[in-house]
Amino acid sequence: MAKQNKAIKISKKHLLGIQDLSISDVNHILSEAKQFIALNKSKNKKIDILRGKTQINLFFEPSTRTQSSFELAGKRLGADVMSMNLSNSAIKKGETLIDTAMTLNAMHPDIIVVRHQDSGASNLLSQKVNCAVLNAGDGRREHPTQALLDALTIIDRKQKIQGLKIAICGDIVHSRVARSNIYLLNMLGAEVNIIAPSNLMPKDIQKLGVNSFSDMKKGLKDCDIVMMLRLQNERMTSSFLSSNREYYEYYGLTPDKLKFAKSDALIMHPGPMNRGIEIDTKLADDINKSVIKEQVELGVAVRMACLKIFCE
């Protein structure tokens, strides 16, 4: 199967955002990822297609799931993986992103996975290094592998994305996950509803081709998928909301509110979750409705696909 895909080439050198990808790029990545799902469930999870390749995970912002997912993905493909947490070293010594990039570039990596608190950081990095750059989240801008794994999860459960009605709810303004998902779900033919209090809604979001709602119940009406986002308190520099309990009352996903969506609606969350703030804890764990664990599982497969494709 893998040989069939050899003919298809990705149109970009780097994976900086969904915005840059064509629909055939996306299908290529998703179909590669599907093949790794089975591998990840088998007893021997390791293959050697990236043997001899060096992967550097450059994380300027703390991360557990994305970083471990990328690390595992690289290792399962046989790459030499080095993870660097720079949230408290080089930057504090005054080194700029470009200098860090040049230093790492001199070590001849084949791929750099980067997460940074500033929007556009991965773009800047990609201009300065010779190898491929995978964006693992830049500020509020994009988190492409998260959107791809979300799409894979939806396809796995619903067999399609075309024609589905998908709600993305929560702290949209600070969310790179929301932006990447909007681009990808739109591209794949879904109807996207964005739900957030006005204080957490980015300006002119409708121009991205979505419907926006400040009333959660209206936004959830007849949705097939309900994607909840984390309240990013660490990015809030002033008062956006009165309290967590009021937020939960109006924007937390509860069984009551979920009734407005379709009866077979699935719940998604990119994690980490704030239980009892944006989502009812029982709903989050409801194996009939929540696919949150599956998202994490498929995340490894998507990242393996991306590493493989962009290393080539």
Binding site: S119, G120, G139, R179, P202, K203, D204, I205, T237, S238
Partner: peptide
């Protein structure tokens, strides 16, 4: 305008920059 970098609008939303 605190922490703002670009005009508040579709460009700030797309680039993920404070408007």
């Amino acid at each position: 305008s605190k922490d703002g970098m670009v005009n508040d609008g579709i460009i700030s939303t797309k680039l993920g920059l404070q408007g």
